[in-house]
């Protein structure tokens, strides 16, 4: 078996060891969906204007946002930081693999795991409790592609935070800044079209919207045709540049890495 795929498979098996953890992940996602549905129903019921999309689309938006949130790699910088702290990072750096690719294929196991053990239960629950629209045909294909590009962006952002551990060891603070920025600027909570026009224009140039706003907008059919192509293009450019940046910084920071003791 290919080394990286073997790694994904091992991480996947490793994940399965702690099954209770999964149950709570599903619970927290369902809880968030319920809360967001109530909020948006109240907002739409208050007769506010300029909401752009229908309530049904908005509810779908928040369900998909919750699912994406459970699937994207957002906290493996803690693992990197911990391994720098204990010095175990030398084991990862010593192996005949690319550290970047190794980390990617390890987190990919979480995606697989999430798809099987989190998304399917949530999808089943939401279909039963609060039905949402499901795209078909080409739209579904573009959504999946867009989601994968978004995954690449989210991975790179977390990896970059993790790399800071090579210099600073402890990166919890950086991680929190990243999570907050991602949560606000990506449209995860509030769609970008509800932001003031000026702010929305800036946010549409940044990588963060590629993780949530673009794929979800494709899902609900708000982003179509030329606008969709533009969105996918933007995602691709950001995913590629962030990965390239991660690789360059990995090489630079690796030289600066200090591991003392044992």
């Amino acid at each position: 078996m290919n080394a990286y795929l073997a790694l994904t498979w091992m991480s996947f098996k490793n994940r399965k060891v702690y099954k209770l953890n999964v149950f709570f992940r599903v619970c927290s996602s369902v809880l968030l969906i319920v809360v967001l549905r109530e909020i948006w129903t109240a907002v739409y019921g208050s007769g506010a204007s300029g909401l752009t999309v229908t309530l049904a689309d908005m509810l779908t938006y928040s369900v998909i946002a919750s699912i994406i949130r459970t699937l994207i790699p957002s906290d493996f910088h803690y693992d990197i930081s911990q391994r720098v702290q204990t010095g175990d990072i030398v084991l990862d750096l010593q192996k005949p693999w690319s550290y970047l690719a190794m980390t990617f294929f390890r987190t990919l196991a979480d995606l697989l795991f999430g798809l099987v053990y989190v998304v399917i239960p949530i999808a089943a629950a939401s279909l039963l409790l609060f039905p949402i629209g499901v795209p078909t045909g080409a739209q579904a294909v573009w959504f999946v592609l867009s989601g994968l590009l978004g995954y690449g962006i989210a991975f790179s952002l977390t990896f970059l935070v993790g790399l800071l551990a090579f210099l600073f060891t402890e990166v919890g603070g950086f991680g929190m800044i990243k999570s907050t920025i991602l949560e606000i600027c990506s449209g995860a909570m509030i769609p970008l079209w509800l932001f003031p026009a000026g702010a929305a224009k800036v946010l549409e140039l940044l990588p963060f919207q590629g993780v949530f706003s673009i794929p979800i907008s494709i899902y609900i059919g708000k982003l179509q045709g030329a606008a969709m192509w533009h969105g996918l293009e933007l995602q691709l450019i950001w995913a590629a540049s962030l990965l390239a940046l991660a690789q360059v910084l990995l090489v630079v920071f690796n030289r600066l890495l200090v591991t003392t003791g044992g």
Binding site: L7, M10, N14, V17, P96, W97
Partner: peptide, 19 residues
């Protein structure tokens, strides 16, 4: 370098693939 939660044999198999 072994995988903490998995059988020893699994770590050997993975290393076989890695190398």
């Amino acid at each position: 370098q072994l995988w903490w939660d998995l059988p020893l044999r699994d770590s050997f198999k993975l290393l076989g693939a890695v190398y």
